[in-house]
Write a protein that binds this DNA or RNA. Structure first.
Lengths: 346, 346
DNA sequence: CTGAAAGCGCTAACAA
DNA sequence: TTGTTAGCGCTTTCAG
């Protein structure tokens, strides 16, 4: 654990200036004689030189690092997105600083601050905290922020989202095409744009077909403290709401849900009550998480290009950071219906 | 996007030196008059000052950042681990640089290099690449590395692992206690210590009960190119191997698997062949991923404290980085049998 | 209690 | 083609 070697050490050894050493070791286009260049590279390798990027970054004011703030990496949805982000970042020589906000506005703000202190110039964030005003001061300081999945109402932030409304519309329309008219909707609390969009899509399809949705069949979970993400939470919502639904005199023939996990909860509850899916009641999910193809029955659901969203957003960020002008500040990615075994013709 | 304000600006405004400003703004214990201190803090707030950590870090040679290299964050197993790591890191004022190696040794090496260049002093890594020699040169440079899940044969790296052997032993013993003696073992390729450990645990329990395992019932997947992680891959291994198993004249009454995903594959295949689980054949998984409680039937499996492993490893790293002496370099976390519905008495 | 000044490792004008 | 030099923003000795 000896003292780290610097360009100064190398300069001394080859009788050159630090400037020259810097030029060859940082692959500058600046002309350096082939001979000198070779010598410097050789010595650098011999001494096992590792550049200290802090020096470079302080000088160039560029940390080659982006920040990513998401609710929780243990949510597979975000894991996929982050995978895409990280891949593109790496290909551009960037690193990603991962921050789990746990839906906690204070944590979010704290992260934002420390990220900025680390001289992060670009941020990809999925936030559901209500008050985004504090973002302004960061935007002013030149931070480039891309909001994914959840919309942030600020003209200075770039947006990449999914067409949730369209997705739910697709799913509901499919149900209708299969002969269902009695379609329930089971959802976690409608506290964010994405879930609201879903809900509207459900209505769209129904209304388009002249079906009046029954209020009794629309079940929304109560507010729960979702501060630490867990799949089990969403699963239980499905279970509980399905339980309530099955107590009704008039039962639906199909159930739409706000996500796959909730759908699994619904299916689990129905099975427990001896109701066959899809034999007696059809169920559709949303998100197309990997497990939906492994479940029993395999789940009919709507796919969201999560990994692509990650790649897309990071590519966009990279473009902006190198000063390319972006023509469009808002992008909406399209969902796709995935037909499997949890829906049956009515 | 004006020029960022520095301690120099603040110093000018309050007629003090940068030294004094630095002292109060970095919470140094160095004595500064209350009056001066108040003034400086006020001006800092007024100017909306954000410290540039690159300056500080260059000076103090401490980046307050750790690196985490894992195969893929889209594997829920690692997502849980990383969640734990990040939580502890944050509480200690550290950030986490996330690196997905995709089981690619070159990528791993590349990350290691750039992490070091960013002056990361601590690294938590789960690596299955064979050749770890290159690690030596980093260890020499003072990098502190903690290997999680997979063992690295190097006296200088700290190790935190699971007792896989014990876990499989527990599962197998449970099966035996339930009256099973014809127990098959279905596994992905035995190319790493963890899977080998599992396999040994299976043998341990069998032998302890005087049961001779039948070679025919031990099925190992062929080598597959797992470069990009996907749950579907593991699922399909289960499906394929179960298919082969069911062609045998003499069938087992219980099947052990190397992980939950594979177990789901097995169950899916059995169902397709009209075989009831656990009615006709019992199945146990391994890992206790969240879905295992939502599947049909709910999966009996073995829990690994993943989140705790993350917290544990990061706490250890933090301790080492502040110079505490660690008494033990190797820690083995204990598995726990989770009994659900996929096993029936024989 | 306060300040001057050196310097962390690197880059980039500018000069030669 | 090479070198000199002035910082990037911050901390920290050392002197007052």
């Amino acid at each position: 654990m000896s003292k780290p070697v610097t360009i100064y050490d190398i300069a001394k050894m080859v009788n050159a200036s630090t400037a020259t050493v810097s030029r060859v070791l940082s692959n500058s286009t600046y002309p350096v004689s082939a001979e000198m260049s070779k010598k410097i590279k050789a010595v650098a390798k011999e001494l096992n030189y590792t550049p200290n990027m802090l020096g470079k970054q302080l000088k160039t004011n560029n940390s080659m690092t982006i920040g990513v703030i998401i609710p929780s990496i243990s949510n597979p949805f975000y894991a996929d997105v982050v995978l895409g982000i990280e891949e593109i970042a790496r290909k551009n020589g960037y690193h990603v600083l991962l921050c789990n906000s746990h839906q906690n506005p204070e944590l979010e703000a704290e992260y934002l601050q420390t990220l900025l202190e680390k001289q992060v110039k670009g941020l990809i964030v999925s936030s559901i905290s209500k008050n985004k005003d504090f973002l302004d001061s960061y935007l002013e300081k030149g931070l480039c922020v891309i909001s994914i999945d959840q919309y942030i109402d600020n003209p200075d932030v770039y947006q990449i989202g999914f067409d949730y409304r369209k997705g739910a519309y697709l799913a509901c329309k499919y149900l209708i095409e299969q002969g269902h008219t009695n379609i329930a909707y089971v959802t976690a609390i409608l506290d964010r744009p994405s879930r609201l969009g879903l809900f509207h899509g459900y209505h769209d399809a129904l209304r388009e077909s002249g079906i009046e949705p029954l209020d009794l069949w629309i079940l929304e979970a109560e507010e729960g403290l979702e501060n630490t993400y867990s799949s089990a939470f969403e699963f239980n919502i499905g279970k509980q709401l399905a339980h309530r639904l099955m107590k009704l005199d008039k039962r639906p023939t199909a159930i739409m849900t706000c996500n796959d996990l909730t759908a699994f909860g619904v299916i689990s509850e129905l099975k427990e009550q001896g109701i066959d899916v899809p034999g007696q009641i059809s169920v559709v999910g949303f998100d197309n998480i990997e497990f939906s193809q492994m479940s029993n029955p395999a789940l009919t659901t709507v796919d969201l290009p999560k990994y692509e969203m990650g790649k897309f957003s990071c590519n966009m960020l990279m473009d902006i950071l190198v000063g390319k002008t972006i023509d469009v500040k808002e992008i909406v990615l399209q969902p796709k219906l995935i037909i499997r075994q949890s829906v049956m013709q009515n």
